[in-house]
Structure formats: C-alpha cells, structure tokens
Amino acid sequence: MERVTTDRRLSMTQQLVVDLTQQILAGELPAGSKLPTEQVIIKERGVSRTVVREAMSRLQAEGLVETRHGIGTFVVDTARPGDFQGSKHVKGGAYDALAVIELRLSLEVEAAAIAAQRATPEQLQAMREALDAANAIDAMDEESARMDFEFHLLIAQCTGNSFFIDAMTHVGNTLIAVVQQAGPAVTLENRALVVREREQIYAALARQDGEAARASMRLHLINMLQRVRGVVEVTGD
C-alpha cells in the first residue's frame, strides 16, 4: 500500500511539473510572472502540500522558476544561462539547432515507441489538441516553435518515464533559445511537409504501433536535420 501511495504521489507531482512547464514554454506564464500560491494550487488541483512542494523543487532544479522568500515563486527567463541552457550552450547560429536535433534523435525516437504502448485516451486527446493548435499557425516564428515543442513534450509525458520528460524539458528550453536567436528552421514552403510528418507520428501513437511511431519520429527529425543543414549552407552560420 505504501508503494502505491508513493507512486501515485510521484505521478501527481510529475503531472503538475509537466503542466506548469508547458504553460511556461507556451508563454502562458511569461518570465517574471508569479505562480499561484501553494494554497491556490492545492485547492485547484486537489493535491497535497507535499506534491506542490516537490513540483516546485523540480521546477527550480530545472531552472524554470525561482522562489523569493516571503514574496512567492516566479518564472525565470528560460533563455538565460542555466544548468542546461543559455549562452554557454546556445550561440545563436544554425549549428546550435543542428546539435539540438541530434540530441532529440537520441531521445525522441525511442520515446515515441514507448509512448505508443503507454499513452492513455486522455493523453492522446491532449496531444490531438496540441497538434491541431500547432497545425493552425501559419507563421513560422518563436510561437510556432513553442507549440510544436508542446506536442513533442506530450509524447515524452506519455512514456510515464520522468527521465524522458526531464530531458525533453531541458531540450525545450534550449530549443526556444535557439529559435529566438537564430530564427526557425521551418519555412512556409515546407510547412505542409512538417504538418504531414507530425500527423504520421500521431496516427502511429493513436493505433499503438510502436514500430511505426519510432519510424515516423525518426523520419520527422532526420528531415528537420536536413532542413536546418540547408539553412547552414545558405546562411553560412
């Protein structure tokens, strides 16, 4: 019984971390904004004080928030230097984007295969909504990059593996910083291809086909790598 209780608490903590991370990366909680108080989160989420405090500790460790004693918890600038993001990792050129995508290839291909076996109907619905929102954006800018990454972060969440989720959260911080400084790799001309690639990933996840999910994610990221390489060749960054 104790193990079940502990696992449930960890799951609730991870869900709270993921939800707040998504709001931060999506700009719903911009840098400098104050998070709801512990009491408000407990009431709105129906979780314990322990869950909230563990979630805040995780967010602080990931460099997303900081607690000012006696004042509250605030969102920090995710593009500033930190443990796994910032100027020492992001120089602002397309080469940085290449490095990020190479890392994503090592993470997301297997994450997609695992997610296909573990995604719940509720998670698939959340993914569908995130995908629809990302597909609806015409402009290729920082906002579209945020929404695209939300879809990928939800896939990591479906694995139920906190290490995948934490790694992808860090990747997201770096990815957004790259887009802010170097510009998006996706152009309006190849947007339709990107939309189709994401739909193929979702379709594989929805039918619980791990091999197809793995293959479609690999194809998507390899194509993305080629698109960024094209930017490098054109701009000479």
Score class of each variant (00 low, 15 high):
residue 117 Q to K: 14
residue 146 R to W: 11
residue 163 F to E: 09
residue 135 N to H: 15
residue 159 T to I: 01
residue 136 A to K: 02
residue 161 N to G: 06
residue 143 E to P: 01
residue 116 A to P: 06
residue 154 L to M: 02
residue 146 R to A: 15
residue 114 I to L: 15
residue 152 H to G: 05
residue 117 Q to V: 04
residue 119 A to C: 12
residue 155 I to S: 01
residue 152 H to V: 13
residue 156 A to V: 02
residue 159 T to M: 05
residue 155 I to L: 10
residue 118 R to I: 00
residue 135 N to I: 09
residue 123 Q to S: 12
residue 125 Q to V: 08
residue 152 H to M: 07
residue 163 F to M: 09
residue 155 I to F: 00
residue 156 A to G: 02
residue 123 Q to A: 08
residue 117 Q to P: 02
residue 136 A to W: 04
residue 155 I to N: 03
residue 132 D to E: 15
residue 134 A to L: 01
residue 122 E to A: 14
residue 159 T to F: 07
residue 169 T to E: 02
residue 164 F to L: 05
residue 137 I to W: 10
residue 141 D to A: 03
residue 117 Q to W: 00
residue 114 I to E: 11
residue 143 E to R: 13
residue 155 I to G: 03
residue 144 S to T: 13
residue 137 I to P: 00
residue 131 L to G: 04
residue 121 P to T: 12
residue 115 A to F: 03
residue 166 D to Y: 07
residue 126 A to V: 10
residue 132 D to A: 15
residue 115 A to I: 03
residue 161 N to P: 03
residue 121 P to L: 10
residue 119 A to N: 08
residue 135 N to M: 08
residue 118 R to V: 04
residue 130 A to G: 09
residue 146 R to Q: 15
residue 147 M to W: 10
residue 138 D to I: 05
residue 160 G to F: 12
residue 131 L to D: 10
residue 125 Q to M: 11
residue 142 E to N: 08
residue 138 D to H: 06
residue 128 R to C: 05
residue 139 A to N: 04
residue 163 F to G: 06
residue 115 A to D: 00
residue 149 F to M: 13
residue 169 T to Q: 14
residue 115 A to M: 07
residue 152 H to Y: 03
residue 167 A to L: 09
residue 139 A to F: 02
residue 118 R to W: 05
residue 161 N to S: 11
residue 163 F to Y: 07
residue 165 I to W: 04
residue 127 M to D: 02
residue 124 L to R: 11
residue 121 P to W: 08
residue 143 E to L: 12
residue 151 F to T: 15
residue 157 Q to C: 04
residue 133 A to E: 13
residue 144 S to A: 15
residue 124 L to G: 13
residue 122 E to W: 04
residue 153 L to N: 09
residue 149 F to T: 05
residue 140 M to I: 03
residue 163 F to P: 00
residue 121 P to V: 06
residue 117 Q to E: 15
residue 152 H to R: 08
residue 132 D to V: 09
residue 144 S to Q: 10
residue 126 A to I: 12
residue 114 I to F: 02
residue 121 P to D: 01
residue 129 E to D: 15
residue 133 A to V: 03
residue 143 E to A: 11
residue 117 Q to D: 13
residue 160 G to D: 05
residue 133 A to S: 11
residue 119 A to H: 00
residue 167 A to K: 09
residue 140 M to F: 00
residue 121 P to H: 03
residue 122 E to T: 10
residue 168 M to K: 08
residue 115 A to V: 01
